[in-house]
């Protein structure tokens, strides 16, 4: 069943985004009397692209920084910072993403900027945590063997440690990306152009059709993104023979 479901959902999502007018029959019963059925203030396609771009940039940046920091604290010279970094991640993860977003506004103002920063900051934690877990579970025997065949530190990191830690790191990236997708939706309350705009517009004008439309599109994006990342993780794990 899975094999049919995935492409079907993808096609549905694409259709919802590119030809929203085609679905007016579906949403019409939810719209108020005589009110608009399909959100048309901004094209859904551009909102979707903007939303995805925000998530992509924030997650990529968070991945680079978080994996970099994880590499640093798992090296001998960075070991002193490890307990501190654990404390920071533990405390940081109790911060609600919405609160991070709301607190970014006083500091940075409205718009895409604070949203991006909030997504980035919050995205760091799961990736950092998982990268440390992944890097420190590489078995010492493997590392010894790598040293034995004469690999330098850098070579060991790039050819042995990172590839072996990759599935766990990807898991963290997935968590981050899904949280970012959800937080970006709320970003429209701080004037970022994301799909949340459709839902918020619906809530403000009491137009359930908009709410449903936005909710459906964002929900489908999230489910498909999640599925894609899981697939990727499984492929990579299989290739590594784990």
């Amino acid at each position: 069943m899975r094999t049919y479901l995935r492409p079907a959902l993808a096609v549905l999502l694409l259709a919802l985004v590119v030809w929203p007018e085609r679905f007016s029959w579906l949403f019409a019963p939810f719209a108020p009397q005589g009110g608009p059925v399909i959100y048309s203030r901004t094209s859904l396609l551009s909102l979707s692209l903007n939303h995805l771009a925000l998530v992509l940039i924030a997650t990529l940046a968070a991945t680079l920084v978080a994996v970099g920091m994880a590499i640093l604290v798992t090296r001998p010279f960075g070991a002193a910072f490890r307990p501190l970094s654990r404390t920071v991640t533990n405390i940081g993860q109790t911060f609600p993403p919405v609160a991070v977003l709301a607190l970014a506004v006083p500091a940075l103002g409205f718009g895409e900027g604070p949203t991006l920063v909030a997504l980035f900051l919050y995205g760091l934690l799961p990736i950092f945590e998982n990268a440390i877990a992944g890097l420190s579970t590489v078995s010492p025997t493997v590392l010894d063997a790598a040293r034995g065949i004469g690999l330098t530190r850098l070579q060991r990191l790039i050819r042995i440690e990172l590839p072996l830690a990759l599935p766990v790191i990807l898991n963290g990236i997935r968590l981050s990306a899904i949280i970012a997708l959800g937080t970006a939706t709320i970003g429209s309350t701080v004037a970022a152009k994301t799909l949340g705009e459709v839902i918020i517009a619906g809530l403000l004008t009491n137009n359930t059709a908009f709410v449903l439309q936005g909710g459906l599109i964002v929900g489908l994006f999230a489910v498909l993104l999640y599925d894609l990342m899981v697939q990727l993780e499984q492929r990579i794990s299989a290739r590594l023979g784990l």
Binding site: F30, I178, L181, G182, T185, I186, G196, I199, I200, G202, L203, T208, V211, L212, G214, G215, L216, V218, G219, A222, V223, Y226
Partner: peptide
């Protein structure tokens, strides 16, 4: 359940509205 967890909160709240309404 993990698919449910994936759905962004605002979308989930939004979908609940017509349902409960």
């Amino acid at each position: 359940l993990s698919f449910l967890q994936t759905i962004p909160s605002l979308a989930m709240f939004g979908i609940m509205i017509p349902l409960l309404g």
